[in-house]
Design a binder for these strands. Structure first.
Lengths: 224, 224
DNA sequence: GACATTAGTCCTATTCGGTGACTAATTCGC
DNA sequence: GCGAATTAGTCACCGAATAGGACTAATGTC
C-alpha cells in the first residue's frame, strides 16, 4: 500500500464542466499549445491515493480558478475506445458552473455550446454524451438547475433554466406551485428590473427539511 | 494503441450480484481456497481492450454459469480505500439474478442476505453500499424488480418484490392500477395454485410503447 | 395616459393516488 | 357436503395534486 503513495496512476480523470449561456448549455473544452486544432475535455492522471472526486475538483480549479458548484462522478469509460492519454480507463465527472462566471483567460480553454461541439476523441465523446444524459436525469433529484444559476435569481430565470434542461415549455403557475410545495427557494429582500415590465423579486436556493410526504409508486416512469 | 491489446489492466472490475431470497435481498460473495475466512465480491483484472460491461458479464458467467438478467455500471471507486487486489481503482457493476436460480456449486461462492454480510475490504464495502443504494433508485427507471423474478410471475409476487425493494407495504389496488397504466406486463394463459386460496394468473414482463403521457414537473422529489 | 411587457396569483375542471369494501376461486376442517 | 379461512382480483369513493386559462400588479415606452 505505502509504496503506491503519490505515484501517478495509469487511468485518467476527465471532467465535463457545464455552464448556461443565454439560451443554451455549454461545455468547457481545452487545447494544448502544441495541437491548436484538437479540442478535448480537461483531463489528468491523478495521484493514486487521492480521492477521485477531489482530483476532479482540482482540474476545475486549474481551469477556472474556482471549484464547481456541484460535482458528481458519471462512470468509468474504457474498453476499446481511444483517449488522448492512451490510458486504460477514464473516470468521467460532471460539474456545474453558475451562469455569468467570467470565461477562462487565454486561448487554452473555451466554452462550446452543446449544439456546436468540435470533434473529440471517441472516449471523450462518449463521456460527454453520458454527461448530458445524466444532467437531464439528475434534474429532479439534485439541485442541478440552481447550481447553473448565480446565487440570487428570479423565478422566471429559474423557470427558463428548467425549460432549457428539459427541452420543453412549462406553465408558469404549475411551475411555481411545484416549487412552493418543494420548499427549495426563499425570497430575499431584493428586486430586479429587467428593462420593461414589473420588477421581479430575487430568490436564493435554500432547501428545507420536509415531512416525508407519502408519495405514490411511480411505475409509469419506467422506460421500455 | 495496438501494443495494449490483451494486456492485463491495473484496475479491477468488481461485481455485485443480487438475487431475491424468500423475504430478503442477497449478494453473491466469493472466497479463495487459500483464505477460507475472507469473503469478497467477485472481481478480476480485465484485459485492456475489452468493454468494461462484457468483462463484468464474464465474471458472472464464471460464478453462476449464466449472464445476469440485467447489468449496469455503478461507478469507479479509488482513492485511499483498500482493495484485495491493491489496484489503483475498481469499477463496480451491479447485476441481477432471477430468484429461484440454482445456487453456485462448491464452497467458493455463497449468497449472503444483505442483513448478514461478513467483513469486506473497505473499497468493496463501499461498492456494495453503493450497489444497494442504486438498486432502490433505479427501481422506477429500470425493470429491476422484474429481473429479480422468474420470467413468469404472479402479480402478488411482483408486489412483494417491490415491497422488498422499497422497504414498505403497498396497497394492492394502487399497485395494480399503476402497473396497468404503465403497460409493463401482460397476462399469459397460465394459472398457479399456491396451496390454499384462489389460483393466481401468471404474467410476464412485456413493456410497450406508450404515448408520451404529459407528466408534471416533480420538483418535490428533490433531496435537501 | 394608453399600451406593451414582464411578474405574480387565483380558480376550476380533471386526473391521480390512497384506501376500504366488495366479489371470486380455491383448500382445509369437520 | 358445507362453512370458514385464505389468497386473487376489482370497484368505487374521496381527497390531493395537476394543467391550464384568466386574472391582477408594476414597470417602461410612446
Amino acid at each position: 500500500m505505502s509504496e503506491r503513495r503519490g505515484r501517478k496512476s495509469p487511468h485518467t480523470i476527465d471532467l465535463v464542466l457545464f455552464t448556461a449561456l443565454t439560451d443554451q448549455l455549454a461545455v468547457l473544452l481545452w487545447r494544448t499549445p502544441e495541437e491548436r486544432e484538437k479540442w478535448a475535455l480537461p483531463w489528468e492522471h491523478p495521484t493514486s491515493d487521492e480521492p477521485l472526486e477531489s482530483a476532479a475538483g482540482k482540474i476545475a480549479v486549474d481551469a477556472l480558478g474556482t471549484p464547481p458548484g456541484w460535482l458528481e462522478q458519471l462512470a468509468a469509460f474504457g474498453g476499446e475506445k481511444r483517449h488522448p492519454s492512451d490510458g486504460d480507463i477514464s473516470v468521467g465527472f460532471v460539474g456545474l458552473i453558475p451562469g455569468g462566471t467570467p470565461p477562462p483567460v487565454g486561448g487554452a480553454y473555451a466554452w462550446f455550446p452543446v449544439g456546436e461541439l468540435p470533434m473529440l476523441a471517441p472516449r471523450q465523446r462518449a463521456i460527454l454524451d453520458g454527461a448530458i444524459a445524466v444532467l437531464r436525469i439528475r434534474m429532479d433529484q439534485s439541485p442541478v438547475a440552481f447550481k447553473l444559476l448565480p446565487p440570487a435569481f428570479t423565478l422566471s430565470e429559474l423557470q427558463r433554466m428548467y425549460e432549457l434542461l428539459l427541452g420543453k415549455r412549462l406553465h408558469k403557475a404549475s411551475f411555481r406551485r411545484a416549487l412552493q410545495a418543494a420548499w427549495l427557494v426563499e425570497p430575499i429582500d431584493e428586486w430586479r428590473s429587467e428593462g420593461r415590465g414589473r420588477p421581479a423579486q430575487l430568490f436564493r436556493y435554500a432547501p428545507r427539511k420536509r415531512r416525508p410526504t407519502q408519495r405514490g409508486i411511480r411505475l409509469d416512469l419506467l422506460i421500455s
